[in-house]
Design a protein around this nucleic acid. Sequence first.
DNA 1: TTGTATGCGTTATCAC
DNA 2: GTGATAACGCATACAA
Lengths: 334, 334
Amino acid sequence: MATIKEIAEKAGVSIGTVDRVLHDRGRVSEETRQRVLQLVQEMGYQPNTAVRALAIRRKGLKLAFFTVDPAEHPFFAGVLAGVRKKAEELAQYNVEVNIHICHASEMFNISPDLQADGIALLHTPGLQPVQEWAVSQDIPVVYYNIPCEDGLAYVGCDYEQSGRIAAGLCALMTRGRGRVGILSEGDERILSCRDRVRGFRKELGANYTDMHLDESAVFYTSDTETSLDTLAVQMLSAHPDLDVIYLINPGDYRVCRTIREHTKNPDLRIITNDLTDTQRRYMQEGLITATICQEPERQGALPLEILFQYLANGLLPEKRNYPTDLSIHILQNM
Amino acid sequence: MATIKEIAEKAGVSIGTVDRVLHDRGRVSEETRQRVLQLVQEMGYQPNTAVRALAIRRKGLKLAFFTVDPAEHPFFAGVLAGVRKKAEELAQYNVEVNIHICHASEMFNISPDLQADGIALLHTPGLQPVQEWAVSQDIPVVYYNIPCEDGLAYVGCDYEQSGRIAAGLCALMTRGRGRVGILSEGDERILSCRDRVRGFRKELGANYTDMHLDESAVFYTSDTETSLDTLAVQMLSAHPDLDVIYLINPGDYRVCRTIREHTKNPDLRIITNDLTDTQRRYMQEGLITATICQEPERQGALPLEILFQYLANGLLPEKRNYPTDLSIHILQNM
DNA sequence: TTGTATGCGTTATCAC
DNA sequence: GTGATAACGCATACAA
């Protein structure tokens, strides 16, 4: 409730001086500095963000959001929805949000007139040039979706926990003693895949010792250079008694139809990740049994908010990691 | 992006006049009124909420939030957390939020010096005096948790959908052909109970015809005046072959331990609603299998936000109903 | 080293 | 009917 003006009066100085103390702009005698800081503490001064936003407009902040083409990875359609909504909100503060789409397995080409006061991106090889550019220009970065130790913060899924939830679901669906298979495009060299599988195994080992995950029922496309569909058929013939199949990577759900056509088990359950439009349809058709979501909209919005708070108000994020909620979706709550 | 000042310049009038047009304060010639409105349309004028908040402080808005004692219904601890967080945020706008706790089956006693510019409450008999008072004083009301057609809006759970999700979960856990029992304190005279049971039945009928809900396996305490624990024992002896028990009302989870002690089925699943601290413990102990949540924090925060937007900015809510998300929680994502 | 003045967009209160 | 202006709390450029 205390204002900068009240503090200035009590301290017997001007608001300019109080401001300099608060923003460490130096040029203040140690004596008055202490007096002001004392009062700030005592009176519990909290800057009014609504008001501050007013003054911030003049900065004309520019934020750059780098993301993946939703046509290639539908998950990012949700991310972009979050970005757009946040961008609209930030427009009131005269903040400009520029969205840059990059493509899988292709280095992002930095345009020479690219400029930004803050950057949000995922930690992917194709975006390495942007990372390096940000470091060289000393521009603050927030990572999302794929964790990275650098940067101000990371917003995204805890993939190991995601795998644990999948394990819990498998157990739920089979009274704790079902047979599970894992099928995935790519393999454990991909962090999200590796961590999900690790979490999955850990959870089975810790709480569901009657569940059965045969090592030979873990299928990665990269092992044999065969397509996901072919692999699915192989899997089903090698393991006709599976109760659940856990499809790990985004996009893997495309194989559902093939699985249903080739299995002889009408009760076979399939668990996937994320919830795209296609997956919604698949759930309605009964192809997907359950899916695990990771708040795509928040992954788009929160990095921008963190950058804005840092640049506009000088506030460092409270945490380094902002794990997104992992939600379970079935036909009735998708 | 257009400001009131730009519009004034283009229209060749002062900002005062534009303001009068925008707020229908009259005393403006029809001619200039039209010209201004025209420009507002063309230039897509949007008032800057951050700035407006500044001016709003002078109003000194008071909001009253009526809720249930969390000691009696732990669900409302989550609601109150949402209220407190929102109250802190609104304090920046010089908005005062007063929380009023009422007790079950007891009429709320309105203090003579109660005053509020806006009210949030649940549609419960004990709060009827407050409803009537609000109407007589012409104070805007937002309802939460228990729906009501009056008021500006309703924020809360779609109980029928909640029941549908429970049905989906039961099917998930029993390959679509399990035996289910329902146990509940109170009965279908309570709206939340009635709607959940209705949704549950509808969903089973529509999508899971191999599931079995025996009418004699639906137990309400009010039918026999017996305690929930006694009823649970009766239920288990009458239906020893149950695969799942659906505990409908908040608080019903207290009976879990009794159920586990009296059942001979080690695989018996129990589904509850909400996620209080006690329920978290019960899930860890394996007493509760899954629970369905309804965003308690949002039920606390959103009504205040709606009232604030209405009173401060004159914005009517976009919808009349704000259904909360229904989320599924198991051991791994609680 | 410190204080003053101005502006951010809107509201509300004057005076004309 | 209309226009000018103070005020909201903070940031900042500039003056002292």
